[in-house]
Write a protein that binds this DNA or RNA. Structure first.
Lengths: 244, 244
DNA sequence: CGATATCTTGAGGAATCTCAATACTAGTGG
DNA sequence: CCACTAGTATTGAGATTCCTCAAGATATCG
C-alpha cells in the first residue's frame, strides 16, 4: 500500500468560506475523497476543536450524534468491563476518523492522549453528505475495511502472541503508521503511558515495562529522551514480533 | 443439462434469469439492499457453490479476487503465525458476507466448519455493482460497521476476560446471532470443535473443555445431544460473561 | 524545588498452558 | 449389529508465563 503524500498543498480555495480547502491533512483522511468545490459542503458543517491532553471526547453509552476527524495529536478508544478492566481498542493519529463503527450509542470512550485538534461533524449532517457524495461513502468504506483488517491483526496479537511479541508488534505498528503519514518512521514517538500500552496489548504496566527493559538490554531498541523509542534493529524486531 | 423452463411466478419474478429474487436469505445479507429488478444484476455475476465440511475456501496470501455470501452452514476465518499458532477472527453463518476487509490479497484463510452453501462473486464485478448502486455500498458499509463493533468486543474479550468469561461470552454471542437471524436462540448448536473455540477465544482446547465442565457443574449450561448447548440460566451466564 | 504521578524492579502467586493418559464419539467395515 | 479405528473431548499433574502486591527510582508539573 503506497503511503499517502502529505505534501502541504498550496491550494487556493476560498479559505474564508471553505477552510477545509486549505487543510494540510486533507488527503490523509476522509475529506481527501472530495473535490475542492464539494469540500465547501463539509466546511459548512464542520466545527474545529482543540482539546488538551487526557480529556474525554465522548463516553461509552452516550448518544452517538457526532463524528470526528483527528487533525493532530493522539486519541485512544477504549471499552470497560463493569469492574474497571479496560481494553484500548485503538490509538488514533492525524487523519484518523472517529465514527466508523457507529450505532445509536457510542460503543467506546474516546479520550485524548496528547493535546489534540479535532474536526467535529454532526452525525446527521455527515450522513446526509454520505448520501450526496457516494465517493465519500466509498472512502469511508475503504477506511472501515482497513480498520477491520487492523482489528483482525490485533485479535491475533491479543489471542496468540507473547508479551514480547506484543510489544514488538506494537512498536512496529506505530512506526508503520508514521511512515504511512509520510513522517520519519524512526525513532518512534510513544506518547501514551505504559498503562495505556498495557491496556492496548492485554498486559499489565509492569509486564510492559519489563518487556521494554528486556528488548533494550538485547539491543533491539533504545529508549530516548521525550518518550521516543529508537528501533535499533528493525529486522530483528520484526522477527520478534512474529515469534521468530 | 438442459434447464427446465418454469413459468415465472408473479411473487418471485423470473427465477430462471434472476435466481436471487427467490433467495430465502436475501434480507439477511447484502442483497437485501436491492430491489427485485436490480437483483438481476447480481444474478448475472453470482455462482452458487456447495462445499463440504472442513474445506478451504481460500487461503491467507492468495489473490483476493472473489467475495462470498454464506447462504447456509458455518465458516471460520483465521490467521496464522509462522510457527502455527492460530487465531480465528470470526465465525460466519447464514447471511454473512466474506469480503468486508479486502485488499490485494486475502489477509486470512476461510474454511468451512460444516457443509456450506456459498454465493461466489468475482470481486471486480462486485466492485462495479457497488459503484452502480450506492445503496449496496451503503449496506456494505453498515455491515462493516457492525463487524468493526464486533471486533472491538472481541478485543475486549481477548485482552481482558478470564477463561470463564470468554466461554460464557462466546455462548451468548452464538445465541444472540441465532436470534438475529430469527431462529430459536436456545438451545444453541455449537458446530465448531473445542479446538476452534479455543483458537477463537485465545485459549487451549483443554481450558475450553474444563470451562465447559465448570459451567455445566454450576448448572449454568447443559451439554445436549448433537453438539447443542442449553443455556439453562441465561441471566447468570450474562453475569459470568461480564465478570459479575 | 517539592509533590505527585509514572515507571521500573523485585518476589511470590495464580491462571492458564503443556504434556500425558483416558474416555468418548462418529464413521467404517466385517 | 457389533467391533474397530481415528479423531475429538475430558481429566489430571506439573510447568510457565504473566499477574499481583510492594518498594524504590524517575519524570513531570505547578
Amino acid at each position: 500500500m503506497a503511503p499517502i503524500s502529505i505534501a502541504p498543498s498550496a491550494r487556493n480555495g476560498d479559505v474564508e468560506n471553505n477552510p477545509c480547502s486549505a487543510c494540510p491533512v486533507r488527503d490523509l483522511t476522509v475529506c481527501g475523497a472530495l473535490e475542492e468545490t464539494e469540500l465547501s459542503k463539509m466546511s459548512e458543517i464542520v466545527r474545529t476543536r482543540r482539546v488538551g491532553a487526557h480529556r474525554t471526547i465522548f463516553s461509552e453509552g452516550e448518544d452517538a450524534d457526532s463524528v470526528f476527524n483527528v487533525t493532530s495529536g493522539t486519541v485512544k478508544l477504549y471499552k470497560l468491563l463493569p469492574d474497571g478492566r479496560r481494553q484500548i481498542t485503538g490509538f488514533l493519529f492525524t487523519g484518523d476518523y472517529i465514527g466508523l463503527s457507529m450505532h445509536e450509542r457510542y460503543a467506546y470512550t474516546a479520550e485524548t492522549v496528547t493535546p489534540t485538534s479535532l474536526c467535529h461533524f454532526p452525525r446527521r449532517q455527515m450522513d446526509a453528505l454520505l448520501k450526496e457524495f457516494p465517493k465519500l461513502q466509498q472512502r469511508l468504506f475503504s477506511m472501515a475495511s482497513n480498520e477491520l483488517e487492523a482489528a483482525q491483526d490485533q485479535m491475533l496479537l491479543l489471542g496468540r502472541k507473547t508479551a514480547k511479541e506484543k510489544v514488538a508488534s506494537f512498536l512496529l505498528g506505530l512506526s508503520w503508521r508514521l511512515s504511512r503519514r509520510g513522517q520519519k518512521e524512526n525513532p518512534v514517538p510513544v506518547p501514551m503511558s505504559r498503562s495505556d500500552i498495557a491496556d492496548y496489548l492485554g498486559l499489565t504496566t509492569e509486564t510492559v515495562s519489563r518487556t521494554f527493559t528486556a528488548l533494550k538490554s538485547q539491543g533491539v531498541i533504545r529508549l530516548l529522551e521525550g518518550n521516543k523509542v529508537d528501533l535499533v534493529d528493525c529486522r530483528r524486531l520484526e522477527d520478534v514480533a512474529e515469534g521468530g
